[in-house]
């Protein structure tokens, strides 16, 4: 697609969304047989599979930490996921994304419960359509929960961008290509930011609005993540307030 004259016409974006609308999002928890936890996510045109293995033994052994588990995160794009074939294997972009995504999730994983072990998160981008790193984090978060890894909460992520001088939520590929800023944000359930990157051009005032928009977007995604887990496990397993277990009964 060549650069369209306008990316916003009469307040509507080219795919018909308003500035605050996200693309369609569908989480499915527990879709892989061998992985301890998994999640398939369609986020607009992104198709993302996340799998979690562990806690398990650490190889190579020198990476072990005697007091806590280590979290490893691999963001990998399939060669067929983009318009021009991507050379397979890690490049500098995916190494950076893996690093910041791991850091976005690590803080909510209760690593201290599993000393000397590894929790491996693998994210495969099967089809990429702008915002694949935030899609990866969203899927990985659900996959970690599906694996039964003790977590303080889920992590939700979304990107905000600027097109035609307007700050809008969740850019699609064309908007990303012809837009002038991209701000991927991840947030935990306590409203704390766990991932924050930006490139492009934003004034301080625009940035403030963009961040507020991302926070609202993350809250909506969090609800969808919770729904996906409820759907798989049949009941609301993430009460907003932890209930004390009475009389030592187990809550099956």
């Amino acid at each position: 697609m060549s650069k369209p004259e306008k990316l916003i016409v009469d307040g509507k974006r080219l795919d018909g969304r308003g500035p605050f609308d996200m693309r369609p999002i569908k989480f499915t928890a527990g879709v892989l047989k061998r992985a301890d936890g998994s999640c398939y996510l369609e986020f607009g045109g992104n198709k993302v599979m996340a799998a979690v293995y562990g806690p398990r033994e650490v190889h190579p052994r020198h990476m072990q930490n005697a007091s806590r588990a280590i979290v490893r995160y691999r963001y990998n794009m399939a060669s067929f996921s983009v318009e021009e074939r991507k050379r397979p294997g890690p490049d500098r972009r995916s190494i950076e994304i893996s690093k910041v995504s791991r850091e976005a999730l690590e803080g909510v994983v209760m690593e201290e419960l599993y000393p000397r072990s590894a929790i491996d998160v693998f994210v495969e981008i099967l089809q990429a359509d702008a915002g694949s790193r935030v899609a990866g984090i969203n899927a990985a978060s659900v996959a970690l929960a599906d694996a039964g890894i003790p977590m303080k909460c889920l992590v939700s992520a979304v990107a905000v961008g600027k097109i035609d001088g307007e700050v809008v939520l969740d850019l699609n590929k064309d908007e990303d290509n012809y837009g002038s800023a991209d701000l991927p944000i991840a947030m935990n359930q306590f409203g704390e930011i766990t991932l924050c990157q930006m490139d492009g051009h934003l004034t301080e005032e625009e940035f403030g609005r963009a961040l507020d928009m991302a926070v609202d977007g993350c809250k909506k995604i969090h609800e969808l993540q919770k729904q996906a887990l409820i759907e798989k496990y049949g009941q609301d397993i993430t009460p907003d307030v932890a209930q004390p277990i009475e009389g030592g009964e187990t809550n099956e």
Partner: peptide, 28 residues
């Protein structure tokens, strides 16, 4: 930031968290 004071790039690094208000303060 660029010479007009607008943002050109940002990167959070590390496992910890920042509140939105802390981020806005740092940007400022």
């Amino acid at each position: 930031t660029n010479k007009e004071g607008a943002l050109a790039g940002m990167q959070k690094s590390g496992v910890g968290t920042l509140t939105p208000d802390q981020i806005k303060y740092i940007v400022h």
